[in-house]
Design a protein around this nucleic acid. Structure first.
Lengths: 208, 208
DNA sequence: ACCTGAACACCGTTCAAGT
DNA sequence: ACCTGAACACCGTTCAAGT
């Protein structure tokens, strides 16, 4: 029997699934058509073209990323908790986040979180441009960190010789450091530490 | 008259020029061949295929990014100055940096800078895993920031309504903040401030 | 050793033609 | 209103054939 009538919604869902699994490069109109059991050209009727299909997926992702509850006693703790929640959400849809990002919609995606960050930054006593910078610094930090760590994850081989370089020079003075820098990154720890440091610095720094 | 013999070097240079101007997507084997005035297939003899051509470009970029001189009196100042120099270098070759990054070679690219960061972090009294984390936090911060700001730059239209959202809520309490968050980002200022805050936090933070 | 064109299997997209 | 296949202009890559 023939398939049920194709809907835009159906196309979007199938496309989202493909992107989520194998990234945007894996989303070809022909594969998508095969997946849906229709002719390639039918898809065009529903979504226009590949680019606006991706746009629609991005819009959906932006809408999905909601508020992150702040936890902790001090403003600093609460900001860090929001940052961690945000990182968790972003890590769940790395491809889609990258696409949101490529389209310059990061700002928009962050509106709900911005709101709670503003609240905490105010509670810490910052105002005006200082407060705005603090909010944006945290935003940039989180998105930047996720982008960096995501790409690190699919790094190929650990390039050899790196260990040796460290062993030779600083190795004797500070073997623990050489070991750390030679080995893999503990992203969770690094994120927590760097976020805490950043927030502490932002909330206590002297006048601009 | 016929063109001079094609060399691998020639291919790499033409490819680098294409990527630097219009990004990796603009580098097609056929366009490259046209640029060089040879048959497409000649390129394959010299560089294998598109992927290893990109790999070669990446290797070149990694080799090019050298040391950044540290300036300033305190370790914190000197670390910030290295971070700024690094950001400047990265911003000059955004496409290539993105490619280095996609290949998971960021670490390697950073070796020279890592060395001077370690020096400064030691001067500030950090040792072992704490020191290693500080170095990496700065690395992640710089690369992450450049990635984020790069993508912000090619953002399409400023999505409307953002202003209104801020005016409505926080606008009355803190109009300067609403104005800041509604307007464009001053990336230079934001980078300096957030880097200073991060470094200050890293160097003064209490035990792990 | 180096270069070539023909050919293959993929793309996204358009369009006239169907129901 | 919705779907279709044929066709177009693009890809990267392989390969047998040239010099």
């Amino acid at each position: 029997m023939a398939r049920a009538a194709l809907t835009r919604e159906e196309v979007l869902q199938a496309a989202a699934a493909l992107v989520k699994q194998h990234g945007p490069a894996a989303l070809t109109m022909r594969k998508l058509a095969a997946e849906l059991g229709t002719a390639v050209t039918s898809i065009y009727w529903h979504v226009g073209n590949r680019e606006s299909l991706l746009d629609a997926l991005v819009a959906r992702t932006v809408a999905d990323l909601g508020v992150v509850a702040a936890r902790g006693r001090t403003p600093a703790e609460r900001i860090v908790s929001v940052a961690r929640g945000l990182r968790r959400d972003l890590r769940e849809r790395p491809h889609l986040v990258a696409m949101v990002h490529e389209r310059g919609l990061t700002e928009r995606m962050f509106l709900p979180v911005q709101r709670s960050l503003v609240h905490e930054v105010h509670a810490a006593g910052l105002r005006g441009a200082r407060a705005a910078d603090a909010v944006r610094a945290v935003q940039f930090h989180v998105v930047g960190f996720v982008l960096v760590e995501r790409n690190r994850e699919r790094a190929p081989v650990q390039s050899p010789g790196e260990q040796d370089l460290w062993d030779a020079e600083t190795g004797e003075q500070d073997p623990a450091l050489a070991r750390s820098l030679g080995g893999p990154v503990d992203a969770d720890r690094l994120f927590t530490r760097s976020t805490r440091a950043l927030v502490a610095g932002l909330l206590t720094a002297d006048a601009p």
